[in-house]
Deep mutational scan, measured.
Amino acid sequence: MEQGTVKWFNAEKGFGFIERENGDDVFVHFSAIQGDGFKSLDEGQAVTFDVEEGQRGPQAANVQKA
């Protein structure tokens, strides 16, 4: 798993971006967030995640709040 920081996340649209430790950004969809209840992330929040190849390039999977 990688570690990163939430760059931004739009809860209304259900997606955002995580900044990886290497400085690259990776797309995150709310469906990739682990846990119960409303799935959202806060700007600046530390997270761990896997990276999978999506239809439009790399995207975060198995996102967990650190």
Rank of each mutant, 00 (worst) to 15 (best):
G4P: 01
D25I: 12
Q45F: 05
E19M: 15
F17K: 04
V51C: 06
F15W: 15
K7M: 04
V51F: 07
V6A: 03
Q34F: 10
F38P: 10
F38W: 15
Q34H: 10
E43C: 10
P58F: 10
R56Y: 15
D50V: 12
R20V: 09
E12T: 14
V51A: 04
V28T: 03
S31D: 04
A11H: 14
R56I: 08
R56Q: 11
N62K: 07
K65S: 09
G54L: 06
G35L: 08
D42P: 08
N62G: 05
K7R: 11
E53S: 10
A32M: 06
Q34Y: 10
Q59W: 09
G14H: 03
W8M: 04
E21S: 14
L41E: 02
F30N: 04
G14I: 02
Q3K: 15
W8K: 04
Q45K: 05
G54A: 08
S31M: 07
D36T: 13
G54T: 13
G23C: 06
N62D: 04
Q55W: 14
W8H: 04
T5M: 10
G57V: 04
V26W: 02
Q55M: 13
N22W: 11
V63S: 00
R56P: 07
E43L: 13
G35A: 10
S31E: 05
I33N: 02
G54K: 08
L41D: 02
T5Y: 14
V28M: 06
T48S: 10
D24G: 12
E43I: 15
G16R: 00
N62S: 05
F17H: 03
T48N: 09
Q59H: 10
A66G: 10
D24N: 14
V6K: 01
G16P: 00
I33W: 04
D36Y: 10
D50K: 10
W8S: 04
K13R: 13
D25S: 09
A61Q: 11
E19H: 15
D25V: 11
K39L: 11
D50C: 09
K65D: 07
M1P: 12
Q64H: 12
G54N: 08
E2T: 11
A11C: 11
F49G: 00
I33R: 00
A60C: 05
K39G: 06
K7A: 05
S40Y: 14
G16A: 02
G23S: 09
A46W: 11
G37K: 06
G54M: 07
Q45A: 09
D42M: 14
G4W: 02
K39S: 06
M1C: 08
F9Q: 01
P58R: 12
F30A: 07
K7E: 02
N10W: 12
K65W: 07
D50W: 12
F15R: 02
V6E: 01
G37I: 06
G57W: 05
F15A: 02
A46E: 11
Q3Y: 14
E2D: 09
D42R: 15
E52D: 09
A60W: 01
F17I: 07
Q34L: 14
G57P: 05
E21G: 11
F38D: 08
E43P: 15
G54C: 07
G16W: 00
G4Q: 01
E21F: 12
G54P: 03
F38E: 07
F49I: 02
S40K: 11
V63I: 05
E12M: 14
I18V: 04
Q55A: 15
A66M: 14
E12L: 14
S31N: 07
A11N: 11
V47T: 03
T5R: 15
F9P: 01
G37P: 06
S31R: 10
I33S: 02
A66S: 14
Q64F: 08
D25R: 09
A32C: 06
I33A: 03
E2I: 13
G37F: 07
S40F: 13
S40W: 13
F9V: 04
I18E: 01
V51M: 09
G57I: 04
F38G: 06
M1I: 12
D42N: 13
Q59K: 10
K65R: 11
E12N: 13
V47D: 00
K7G: 04
E21Q: 13
A32L: 03
K65Y: 09
F27P: 02
P58T: 08
M1K: 15
E21I: 14
Q34K: 13
G23M: 12
N22D: 11
Q59L: 06
Q45Y: 05
N10Q: 05
V28R: 00
Q45N: 07
I33P: 01
I33V: 08
E43Y: 15
T48Q: 08
T5V: 13
S40L: 07
Q55E: 11
Q34I: 14
R20I: 07
E19T: 15
E19L: 15
W8Q: 03
W8G: 02
V28L: 08
E2W: 14
Q64M: 11
E52I: 15
K7H: 07
G44T: 04
Q34V: 15
K39Y: 06
V63C: 04
V51I: 14
G44K: 08
F27S: 02
E19W: 15
F9R: 02
F27A: 02
Q59M: 10
G57H: 05
D50G: 08
F49N: 00
A32W: 04
S40D: 06
A60V: 03
A66Y: 12
D42L: 14
L41N: 02
S40E: 07
H29W: 05
A11I: 13
L41S: 03
G37R: 05
F30G: 04
K13W: 09
N22K: 13
K13S: 07
F15T: 03
V26K: 01
E52K: 11
Q64T: 11
D36Q: 12
Q45C: 08
H29P: 03
Q59F: 14
E12F: 15
E43V: 15
F49D: 01
D24M: 12
A60H: 01
E52C: 08
E53P: 11
V26E: 00
Q34A: 12
K7V: 05
E12K: 15
E12H: 14
A61G: 08
G16V: 01
T48Y: 12
F27C: 03
D24S: 14
E2R: 07
K65C: 08
S40A: 09
N22P: 09
G37L: 06
P58I: 10
E19G: 13
G16M: 01
R20A: 06
Q59D: 02
V47E: 00
G4Y: 01
F30M: 07
R56N: 12
T5L: 11
Q64I: 11
T5K: 14
K13L: 12
V63W: 00
P58C: 07
N22R: 12
D24H: 13
V26F: 04
E19N: 11
I18N: 00
N10T: 06
R20L: 06
N62F: 06
G4R: 01
W8Y: 08
A60F: 01
A60T: 03
A61D: 04
V63Q: 01
Q55V: 14
E52A: 11
G37Y: 07
S40Q: 09
V47W: 00
F30I: 08
M1F: 11
E43G: 14
V51W: 06
A60G: 04
